[in-house]
Write a protein that binds this DNA or RNA. Sequence first.
DNA 1: ACAGATATCGAGACTCAATCTCAACACAAG
DNA 2: CTTGTGTTGAGATTGAGTCTCGATATCTGT
Lengths: 160, 160
Amino acid sequence: MREGKQEFAEWLASRKLRVTGERMAVLDEVMRANGHIDIDYLQEQFRKQKRPVSRATIYRTLSHLVQSGLVQKVLTGEGQARYEKMYGRQHHDHMICLGCGEIIEFTNDEIERLQDWVCHKKRFTIVTHTLQIKGFCEKCSAQKASVEGGATDHRRHGRN
Amino acid sequence: MREGKQEFAEWLASRKLRVTGERMAVLDEVMRANGHIDIDYLQEQFRKQKRPVSRATIYRTLSHLVQSGLVQKVLTGEGQARYEKMYGRQHHDHMICLGCGEIIEFTNDEIERLQDWVCHKKRFTIVTHTLQIKGFCEKCSAQKASVEGGATDHRRHGRN
DNA sequence: ACAGATATCGAGACTCAATCTCAACACAAG
DNA sequence: CTTGTGTTGAGATTGAGTCTCGATATCTGT
């Protein structure tokens, strides 16, 4: 048993929730994917595998996975939320490219330490934190520079 | 002319957009409010003043204000977005209390500097960044501690 | 100040992610 | 097998935010 199956099963049991095929399938897919995926991606995977799982179940299971700490929800502020596995991984923050949508992960212990310090000073008890840096990745920055002078409006028109 | 009226008027003119009563009224309200407000609050204010402004117009105007840099949009990940004036204020980050919903502002130059450095290392061009720390403010932390052992489930049931 | 050109407004329809409802189903324990 | 309870999926619902379009207000040139 690998990739968090045991942990999730135990977490479910501890809450008197059942270990079902659908739940394990969702866990499997999130763990197999190595990026920041969304619900559409998951549903598509299940469809391909001829083992459709309803959106409601995917949403419900992801919610459980997030609560169990095995998966993290990433709100980019553009359309759907995305999810990434956290099992066996350490906390990290995100840079989100406004050009191609790529999400780059990074960590910086010093920033974390400073956050703790600031919160301690304000007597604020940290539960979670999110640091998102939006801008343009190396590739999109170069592309943008080469078109300079033209229409460089990369704004998205979805909700944000 | 104060509180960004001039700036907003000029910004609108620069884009061949018109300076209307509705737009100035929205600017006024956001500037008058000294917290992190939402659309409902604004609409309520206009209703009280017997000068109703439609939601569509409020949304459209806030979008302009954000683009002009006079106002900042804050996505807490719970329900509606909130807005705060930025005119005459410096950038800051947020701590969001999961108990009472209060938003505490803070700044830390060292964190900003480290962000720049991390992005430089990854050749990422920063446009904006958001640092949100979720947890419990001093008051809610104390309250939580005093109820310890009981039902301490502060999770929200709205979308997040 | 007036008129024409055009941006803006408001009411309500619409979009879309996410959640909820509920009847059918599955599973564990007696 | 039966009962109790958790789960599922299809589709309805919610709710923030956006769009449409006829009526209206603002700007610009004269």
